[in-house]
Simulated scan of single mutants.
Amino acid sequence: MSDKDAEFQSLDELAAEGDEMDAAAAAGFEEIKALQAERDELRDKFMRALADAENMRKRADRDRREAENYGGSKLARDMLPVYDNMRRALDSANEAEHEINKALLEGVELTMRELLHVFKKHGIEPIAPEVGDKFNPQLHQAMFEAPLPGTKAGEIIQVAANGFMLHDRLLRPAQVGVSSMPAS
């Protein structure tokens, strides 16, 4: 073998080694691209899991606040007839009975004040419309309509029962009678 043949052979070997190195570099580059894609996918999954965890925390916090504020609404609704009955008892006593049953009526009044204090403590506020107020379907329930001279259509002419709000929610609408006087 001549020096030239040996030289060509070593050039061929170098070229083959270069091809192997290019193939290895290409394989390494492909592996780097695959690892970057996997990293990006894992980063995306991590960010989504983080967002889900934050949303769950917010939802749990909101649910806890709602349970705290409105969890007792069934009990509160069940206590409203007690208030109504006490109100009727006080309203039904005439002047003569006030003197005879003074201690009893005073006890009922104190109990009613305490009930209202407990209501207030738990975010229950009365809706007490007055005769002549404008009917509001968001807060009032019309029990009847009647034409009453000297009133305008949509005015409250009688209050049958007070309503109640639990924080910002309607617990029970005020029960009222409404004027249906036609416009003149």
Rank of each mutant, 00 (worst) to 15 (best):
R57M: 09
K58Y: 08
R59W: 02
R59K: 15
D63Q: 14
R64E: 14
R64I: 10
E66R: 14
E66K: 14
A67S: 09
E68C: 07
N69P: 02
Y70W: 06
G71K: 05
G71Y: 04
S73R: 12
S73L: 07
K74G: 14
K74A: 15
D78A: 13
M79F: 15
L80Q: 04
L80C: 05
P81L: 06
V82T: 14
Y83R: 13
D84V: 02
N85L: 11
M86R: 08
M86T: 09
R88H: 10
R88M: 06
R88K: 14
R88Y: 12
R88W: 12
A89R: 05
L90F: 06
A93M: 07
N94D: 15
E95Y: 03
A96T: 12
H98D: 11
N101K: 14
N101H: 10
L105T: 09
E106H: 04
E106C: 02
G107N: 08
G107S: 12
V108D: 01
E109T: 12
E109Q: 12
L110N: 15
T111W: 00
M112C: 08
R113T: 05
R113D: 12
L115W: 05
L115M: 14
L116Y: 07
H117A: 14
K121R: 13
G123T: 02
E125S: 11
P126V: 03
I127G: 00
A128W: 00
P129T: 00
E130H: 01
E130S: 01
V131I: 02
D133P: 01
K134A: 06
F135H: 01
N136K: 10
